[in-house]
Write a protein that binds this DNA or RNA. Structure first.
Length: 345
DNA sequence: AAGGCGTGGGT
DNA sequence: TACCCAAGCCT
C-alpha cells in the first residue's frame, strides 16, 4: 500500500485537529523553548498527559529556566516530583539541568546526538527535542508511533525485537520539513484515534493508507511478546509518632523510590517480614495494610504504629498536619493515610 | 540485554 | 475485577 501521501495527510489533520497543550507553542510562536520541550518530554516518559499537566505548571512557575532548575535545592525538586513516579527521572532532571549549565553554557545542544549525551535523554527524547524544539529532521519513535506505524504497514514482528524494523518504517514516512509537528501528530493520532483498543478508523485521516485497516484487524498490532507474571511481595511500614510529628527517612539514591522521603520499612519479601528490622524498639499497634502495584511486583504493605519509640537516627520529625508537603511517593502517602485513619478509630 | 523502575486511567 | 498500558531510560 503506497504511503507517499501519509506525511501531508497527517500534517493537514494536525493543523485542523491538534491538541492544545501547555508545552506546545502558541499561535504565532514557531517553537516552544527547548527548556520547556525537554521538561515536558521527561515528564511524559511513560506518563499520561493528564497526569503531567499540574506538575508541568508547577515546575515552570517555580523554576522558569534551566538555570533556575540547575540551582534548585535537590530535596525540593524531588518533593515536587512526588506522585509522578519513576523517580530516577527527577534525579536525572537535576543532573541534566546542571550539565546544560556547566558543560553547555546554559543552552541545550541543538542536535539529536548532542542531546543524547545528557542524563535522562534517550533515543526517543533526543529525537523529540531535536525535532520539536530545534526544527531538526529526526525520527521520533514512542509507543504511539510504534502502534500507528505497525498498523499502517501491518508489520507483525513482535516487540521488542521488531522495534528497529518499526523505526525503519517510521523513517520512511517522516518528512524533511515539520518533523516535530509530524511526530506530535503521530502521538495525537495514537492517543485519540489510533488507540490501543477500539481504534476509530472511520475518522482516521490515514484510513485509506492503512494496511491493518484494510485487513480489518488493526487491534492485532503491534504484536507483543508475552509478559511475565507479577510476584506478590510483603513488607511493613513503621509509623512513629511523637508530639504531632512523624519520623520520616530518605530512601537510598538507587532502587525503588530512590531518593524520596518515606516511612521506615523493613525488607520487601515474598513472606510477611512482620516487625523485623523495625527502626526502633516499641510496642507496635496494627493499623491495617495498603495494597500497591508497581511495574514488576505487587506489594502488601502492613502499617504498624507507635507513640513511644526508642531513640532513632538518620531521619527527621515531620509535622503530621503538613504531611502532604513531605513529598511522599504515593505508596507512602497511602500508608500515612492508613496510619492517620487508624489513630482515629 | 533483559529487567528494574510508579502511577493512574481505561475497559 | 483484573488487567492493560502510557510522549522510556538506565544498567
Amino acid at each position: 500500500m503506497p504511503v507517499d501521501a501519509v506525511p501531508e495527510k497527517l500534517l493537514n489533520w494536525y493543523d485542523a485537529h491538534h491538541r492544545r497543550l501547555p508545552w506546545r507553542a502558541g499561535p504565532g510562536e514557531p517553537r516552544a523553548a527547548p527548556y520547556r520541550v525537554w521538561l515536558s518530554e521527561v515528564m511524559l516518559q511513560q506518563t499520561t498527559v493528564a497526569a503531567v499537566k499540574s506538575y508541568y505548571a508547577h515546575f515552570t512557575t517555580r523554576w522558569p529556566t534551566v538555570a533556575d532548575l540547575a540551582a534548585a535545592d535537590e530535596a525540593e525538586v524531588m518533593a515536587a516530583w512526588a506522585g509522578l513516579g519513576y523517580y530516577a527521572r527527577a534525579r536525572n532532571l537535576i543532573a541534566c539541568a546542571r550539565a546544560v549549565v556547566n558543560d553547555h553554557g546554559g543552552a541545550f545542544p541543538d542536535s539529536e546526538a548532542g542531546l543524547r549525551t545528557l542524563p535522562g535523554i534517550g533515543d526517543y527524547s533526543a529525537a523529540a527535542i531535536a525535532a520539536i524544539a530545534f526544527g531538526r529532521r529526526a525520527v521520533v519513535v514512542d509507543a504511539n508511533v510504534e502502534r500507528v506505524t505497525s498498523r499502517l504497514f501491518a508489520f507483525d514482528g513482535p516487540l521488542p525485537v521488531g522495534r528497529p524494523a518499526i523505526r525503519e518504517l517510521a523513517d520512511r514516512i517522516t518528512p524533511d520539513e515539520r518533523a516535530g509537528d509530524f511526530a506530535q501528530a503521530m502521538m495525537d493520532l495514537g492517543s485519540s484515534i489510533c488507540t490501543v483498543r477500539n481504534p476509530q478508523c472511520l475518522i482516521c485521516p490515514l484510513h485509506g493508507d492503512c494496511a491493518a485497516r484494510a485487513a480489518g484487524n488493526p487491534e492485532a498490532y503491534p504484536v507483543k511478546a508475552p509478559k511475565k507474571a507479577k510476584p506478590q511481595r510483603r513488607g511493613t511500614a513503621f509509623w512513629i509518632e511523637r508530639d504531632g510529628h512523624v519520623w520520616l527517612v530518605r530512601r537510598p539514591a538507587k532502587g525503588m523510590l530512590g531518593g524520596m522521603r518515606a516511612l521506615p520499612t523493613g525488607p520487601w519479601t515474598d513472606a510477611d517480614p512482620g516487625l523485623a528490622e523495625a527502626p526502633a524498639k516499641a510496642d507496635w499497634v496494627e493499623a491495617g495494610s495498603v495494597d500497591h502495584v508497581f511495574t514488576h511486583f505487587a506489594l502488601r504493605l502492613r502499617v504498624v504504629t507507635t507513640r513511644k519509640p526508642a531513640p532513632l537516627n538518620e531521619g527527621e520529625w515531620w509535622p503530621i498536619a503538613r504531611i502532604e508537603e513531605a513529598g511522599l511517593p504515593t505508596l507512602f502517602a497511602r500508608a500515612a493515610a492508613r496510619a492517620i485513619a487508624a489513630a482515629q478509630d
